[in-house]
Simulated assay, not measured.
Amino acid sequence: MKVKDKVFVVTGAGSGMGRELSIQLVRKGAQVALVDINRKGIQETAVQAGIERVSFHEVDITDRNSVHYLPSQVLSQLGEVDGLINNAGIIQPFLDVKGLDYAVIEKVMNVNFYGTLYMTKAFLPELLKRPEAHIANVSSMGGFIPFPGQTVYSASKAAVKILTEGLYSELKGTNVGVTVIHPGAVNTNIMKNSDLKTASTNSEAGSKILSAEKAAALMIDGIERNKFRVLVGKDATLLDMLYRFNPKMAVDLIVKKMKKRSE
């Protein structure tokens, strides 16, 4: 589905990847409903994207009642909805499961999985009314391969992966296309948005981090090509290949690399 002249809803639009997705969608001729819990952030995105091409909505996507009323708010301002990009997400503190508080576990699952589910269920009836429409859910390379210290985050993103693939199977033959997106390391402020201290990176790791601008372009291209699955970044692509070839070897490699980096 070409994005020109379409209306998209983007979550997490107040910063990082969501902001870049919104800006690029507008540049390609779309209108965008900016959704974020941070009102100041979405106002800044609106200015950068073009205030005349967007609407902004301060919404906590983990609040099912608030999400339920969001479609009518978007429709009243933009007239219709053709696409939904569930981009909002947070990571967990870098701790093993045994060290995580239940409150943290619930927050990660609520934002990453339930937020995606609530948005999808709220907007799907409207998307099914359109001549063509699209849902793109942002998982992670952590959604298909685990990282020590991010197990709950990975579990939440694996849930997004299966939810999205299930939606694809249920909506096959309808007007709604479905794409699951697996970004690798991308230069965004997800650490800050997750209330975590910014982690230092060595030059080797930094050189592999993809810019948000490039990552967003790959995501939008995947939507326009109606791709089932989009891997964003060389790290995601290589780990996907290795995991398919030998899952245990891939996990052992991740453990070894992360232990070496923490020394």
Results as ranks from 00 to 15, higher is better:
K248P: 08
T45M: 00
N246I: 10
E204M: 12
V59A: 02
L210K: 12
M1P: 15
I190S: 04
S140N: 01
G99W: 08
K197F: 12
G50D: 03
S15R: 09
A122S: 06
F144S: 01
L196D: 06
D235C: 02
S139H: 05
L242T: 08
D235P: 02
V3Y: 09
V152R: 04
G206A: 12
M241L: 15
A158W: 10
T45Y: 01
V152G: 01
M241R: 14
V67A: 08
Q24T: 05
L253D: 02
F8Y: 14
G173D: 10
K2T: 14
G177M: 00
L171S: 04
V74R: 11
S169R: 11
S207M: 10
V251K: 14
I105E: 05
R261I: 02
M249P: 01
R261T: 12
E263R: 12
L242G: 04
V59D: 00
I105V: 14
V180F: 04
T62Q: 13
G89E: 04
L34W: 00
A46Y: 03
K248N: 05
V232F: 08
P148Y: 08
S15T: 02
K197N: 11
N189H: 05
L78T: 02
V138M: 06
T11Q: 08
I135E: 05
N226G: 15
A46C: 08
T151H: 13
S200V: 13
L25T: 09
E204H: 02
I223G: 09
G166P: 07
M249I: 09
P125M: 04
A155R: 03
L171G: 01
N112Q: 04
S194C: 03
E20W: 01
E132I: 08
L25E: 05
L100P: 06
I209H: 11
S262G: 11
G233Q: 10
V255D: 03
L25V: 04
K197P: 14
G233N: 07
D60E: 12
T116H: 10
H57T: 09
S156I: 06
N112D: 15
A133R: 03
